[in-house]
Design a protein around this nucleic acid. Structure first.
Lengths: 338, 338
DNA sequence: CTGAAAGCGCTAACAA
DNA sequence: TTGTTAGCGCTTTCAG
């Protein structure tokens, strides 16, 4: 390993000078600079990021906490986040919490403020208390994809209007003439996806369309969860002409359930989800969905986190609002059959 | 931020002693230990990983280089790799190279040996030269999922017998009575997926089944690539009863192509892929495929990398062989229709 | 414009 | 059993 000192030696200067030319700080004579550069080149010197981090007091890394990177939604977010982080020379550490609060806490304890300068948290089971503790210790935390722009989580966050997303989905179904619409919610009633469902209900109600509680199912945010919920719904309420799911995964499950029952999509049943993950684009038929600005939100989250880092975390728990969700109509929704 | 020194002060000992009780190294009196622990507790002390890394000469992180974490195959691998790394207290930094050699090099230059102790590389466009350079500089590198157990890449690696995977897929199709089988290869003829195709060809040949070159297509390793290739194949060779794809993504694309042409799967066309990504399990019909031991390979790769790190990288470029691929029959393959 | 020196927080011999 | 003493490699005042 080549060190600064070795470069300095070879260039006939001191480490301080080498540091200066490398960081483009301070004034260095052209001749000296060239000698230094030559030495760097010759020795193949690469700065030791850990040493630099220690000296500077902060590491060039950000932590991204997700429940599991294998959840199809997160990789897209992670990719965008990493790209944004790289812009300012930062690296991304992924932390799979696996829904386990103990693991989450361990991550926060170990990483926050030492190995990483800041933490990005995806909607997850991580307790707000833990996050506040982390923050109190001086490490900025940003909640990514907060679902309710109208309510502050008490932590810096990037909010996406998921209420609007639910409303958009409902409106689309309404526009197609559906009035018997089942709902599959990928969380518990008061869970993280509640706002999406609220938006859906709100729109239905405003249109005077009934939506009895029995036509809704709360389940896991997964294909299988949606599958099971849809089976129940389609069995118990044979007059349903459409299914709204608060997320693409359960929506996909609903499509499978319909297919297994010999129903054609969208002729016999329309299905719509929320998010627009890659799978939605690549399923057959393509899943109509309300696209959420994943990339933009990731970029904004990183930028917000970086701003907090620069400013020492001192800011009025701001909320940045991501662009509005937009309807993406594919082949899984169609006009209701008379 | 609380430091070791502060803890020491409060416990009335020296930093060295605190370090000893925390690392469970050396002998420390029970009373002293307790006082230290109390102080740690009271002050909420957390070791500064960066400082530790610098002092120890190595960081508790591993880098995982992939072309894009959004490629559906990588997240599953990344998850397993992270789990394995965590076992020994290491963190995972994901590096999306985006197929760009410049980015890859930049990562290697910056991270290897400074921010991370070792590098995991997924099959990608990263030049072997760069990897050797990294290794020569003292940072262990492990190639994950090397496709040819019979040929050493000249770098430590975990190999998966993809030739066998291709052979297995072919045999399955043969067993079902297919003799007119199109092939879609998700890389160039000499590319990374060549071994899979070779295994396929080998088995067909051994069975005396003809497979003319016109019935193979080399394309991108993506759904769309497979879709386009399948369209060509099905148009030009209407007597094909099955399609083998070297990866699940193009296989899925082939299924879509068939569906778009009104062909039923598996009645009119059988389709099989390789890997068994989550999408394969969740597509309709479920994709028959040859499952590759992703988790095992990830774990082995991390273990190998850690072994190299411990040993200072001095070992005879060993190759660890992952478990054999296994056939997973789902609904996309069936007996050929007479 | 360049050098000298202190120190980031921790670990690791070696003493005591 | 505990303390002392050096650094790890880099940045950063502050002198010269």
């Amino acid at each position: 390993m080549t060190t600064l000192a070795e470069v300095a030696l070879r260039a006939g200067v001191t480490p301080a000078t080498v540091s200066n030319v490398l960081r483009k700080r301070g004034k260095v004579g052209a001749a000296t600079r060239q000698r230094v550069l030559d030495a760097v080149e010759f020795l193949g010197y690469r700065p030791h990021l850990t040493a630099r981090a220690l000296a500077e007091g902060s590491a060039p890394t950000l932590a991204l906490m997700v429940t599991s990177i294998a959840n199809p939604f997160y990789p897209e977010f992670a990719l965008a986040a990493e790209r944004a982080a790289r812009k300012n020379g930062r690296f991304l550490i992924v932390c799979n919490t696996n829904e386990d609060p103990v693991i989450s806490r361990a991550y926060l304890d170990q990483i926050a403020g030492t190995l990483s300068e800041g933490v990005l948290v995806m909607n997850s089971r991580i307790g707000f208390d833990d996050l506040h503790t982390t923050r109190a210790r001086g490490t900025p935390v940003v909640l990514c994809m907060w679902e309710r722009p109208d309510v502050s989580p008490g932590l810096p966050c990037v909010a996406v209007d998921f209420f609007a997303a639910g409303a958009l989905a409902a409106q689309h179904l309404l526009d197609l003439g559906h009035t018997r619409i089942g709902a599959i919610i990928g969380s518990q009633p008061e869970g993280v996806q509640a706002a999406r469902y609220a938006g859906f209900c709100h729109t239905l109600k405003a249109a005077g369309v009934a939506h009895p509680a029995q036509e809704a199912r709360f389940t896991r945010d997964a294909v299988q969860g949606g599958y099971e919920a849809a089976c129940e719904l389609l069995t118990e309420h044979t007059d349903l002409t459409a299914i709204f799911a608060t997320n693409d995964l359960p929506a996909l499950g609903a499509m499978h359930a319909a297919a297994d029952r010999g129903m054609r999509i969208p002729d016999d049943l329309s299905v719509i989800g929320i998010t627009d993950i890659q799978l939605a684009r690549e399923s057959r038929p393509g899943l109509s969905t309300v696209a959420v600005p994943t990339d933009a939100a990731a970029t904004m989250a990183v930028e917000l986190l970086e701003a907090l880092i620069e400013s020492g975390g001192h800011c009025e728990t701001p909320m940045r609002i991501a662009p509005e969700p937009v309807l993406v109509q594919r082949a899984s929704t169609g006009r209701v059959r008379s």
